[in-house]
Amino acid sequence: MFGEKAIELVRELDRIGDGQLPAFNEDGIRQVLEEMKALYEQNQSDVNEAKSEGASELIPTIKFRHCCLLRNQRCIAAYLYDRLLRVRALRWEYGSVLPTSVRFHMSAEELEWFNQYKKSLATYMRSLGGEEGLDITQDMKPPKSLYIEVRCVKDHGEFEIDDGTIILLKKNSQHFLPRWKCEHLIRQGVLEHVLS
């Protein structure tokens, strides 16, 4: 049956339901597009035949192929769109710099889109809250205090806070830091929030 390659793309994303980005299946997309091209060409020649020779018995076949074309189109559109949603989520979970292992899974167009999204978001955040702008990726949960207790989960190297002090983020060391400085590091799994 037609459309088998296309549904495989969709299944691939559905299997990984928690929002992780699997490698871009360029080969799968190409195969679907080839199938679509073949369907289109067959239909085109049958349409010409039906027109010139009045072969109206071909019409169900043409409709059949057309349905398959639309199906393939839908699968590809959904595949690309769902990936975009995942790429967008990366900006909020990882911050603006992505690890290379994640970038490796994106197509060139997706990388381009990610950069544009990053820029739009930054421009929007600069336009908020007066002179300095407002980082809306901060404080995803309402803050209760300005400083929080954090523990290092892994070695991260030196880290500078507002007043210029440099602290060494060494595994298992514990610090009392300004909340807004460490929220991203917590999300990235470098620090752990310790509740007293």
Partner: peptide, 18 residues
């Protein structure tokens, strides 16, 4: 009383596991 605790993103964690 843990709802105000900030946690690592599950997305990031799962990537690391993998």
């Amino acid at each position: 009383g843990q709802s105000s605790q900030m946690t690592a993103s599950s997305l990031v964690q799962n990537y690391r596991k993998r």
